[in-house]
Nucleic acid binder design. Sequence first.
RNA 1: GGCGGCGUAGCCAAGUGGUCCAAGGCGACGGUUUGCAAAACCGUUAUUCGUCGGUUCGAAUCCGACCGCCGCCUCCA
Length: 492
Amino acid sequence: MALKLHNSLTRTKDEFKPLEEGRVGIYVCGPTVYGHAHLGHAKSYVSFDVLVRYLRYLGYRVTYVQNITDVGHLTDDADEGEDKIAKAAAKEHVHPMALAELYTRSYFEDMDKLNCVRPDISPRASGHIIEQIELVKTLLEKGYAYEVNGSVYFDVAKLKDYGKLSGRNIEEMVAGARVEPSPDKRNPVDFALWKKAEPNHIMQWPSPWGLGYPGWHLECSVMAMKYLGKTIDIHGGGLENQFPHHECEIAQSEAANGVPFVRFWLHNNMVTVDGQKMGKSLNNFITLKQAFAGDHERLNRYYEPLAVRQLILNSHYRSPLDFSDAALYAASSGYQRITEAVKAVRKHAKTAPSGGADKDILDQLDAAKAKFEEAMNDDLNTAVALSVLFDLVRLASKLTEDSGTTAETLGAVDQLFTQLGGDVLGIVQNEYIESVAASDEAVDKLAQILIAQRAEARKAKNFAQADAIRARLDEAGIVLEDKPDGTQWRWK
RNA sequence: GGCGGCGUAGCCAAGUGGUCCAAGGCGACGGUUUGCAAAACCGUUAUUCGUCGGUUCGAAUCCGACCGCCGCCUCCA
């Protein structure tokens, strides 16, 4: 069965075939780096990360491009308002490029924690001003754009199929326009390709039309075609960008090149928090750093980054996802269960007898793999794919409890965990660090003393004292677990 | 106002005409284990898919109405 992806352009699940045999080019709209990444970014980029990982699993050579928007994204999309980066930079009294750099690093840091593979290319909009000017020139030459007072606008009326992605038509949009159209525009739905810069605008570049800066939509068209060609296989982004951003990208690119811009448009759905749209004013705006630290009044505790990842994968990328402390807690518990199962398999494999892999188990693993692929082939049904991992957890527990299970059998289970749960879903790690972090060394020593004392008390059947030690450690946030090979501690 | 989507157990969530008298996870409950716990493991947990009506031999799945929620059109991934 072949991979099918829901294409926003056709509104159906279409069989995916790349333009060039065996190779795939993907462009995903990246962040505008004027603040720390939040839960919404996580859903979007984890979703596309899984797409990239799965395509590679299927054997494609994937080129993954995801831009960093560091200029041109205005606070108001009707081509008015301020540049988001410049506005935030002014507030923090730093140069816009310094601000962009700070949040770019922050973004990568968070995405690394979520175990998202780095894009092959992370182009910056500010690094492609020349190419953007060239595209504007082309559009002017071909008659799709016009210049007014040092700004250049795209003439939407010149493109008959404008609106094909979002299912809108120009008349409706003009009639329903809620913002006062700019007097420079011939048509209210026209959009800026190049904006004239006011003298106090820090980010500005010389152009044939005077000093200015590029319109937001321009960068994606330019960088996508520069690195992936005039027609790209897959373009991903958030649903909220379907219009106007992606529609404008199509308009610019197809007007300039005369060929289809994107073959598959993929849009991921939005995030809500406690059932409401996430917004700064609603006090439910949660950054990833806050989630990982538990530093938000909506959260009862901190959550491991991969637990957040698991919650995202638990639902479909085209469905909205409601974040709540309860949902995160549930995902976290499930994530721990998978993690413990993988660790147990690897641990047992080291001491298990050798003797070849169990044929029956191998068959079960093949069946699990087939079920996983079938789910992923169906427009990346990660919820079902994840359920296959839980099937493996159940199988693994049976095997690790049976002392007759061979190392080869356990090795095969580990391999599938690593491949499906690790390579594709990104929630199973290749290595788990068992040792206590260096900073906890002193705590570990103290805990060991108390654990030894408790062991003596238990030996003497002084359970009152033993329980008191355990209770007081619990108060300090340390949980004791009595395992067959001794007592271990962990943070609550 | 225009366009689009959603409503499945206590919670999250898959399924979109029969193989579903509905995956999986969390939680809860019962059990194994334990001195007792924790952790782990096993088992149980929706005669029903927002409401009402229709199409069909057959619907959670298609159609209509209604109720509720959400998104885009205006900054957002």
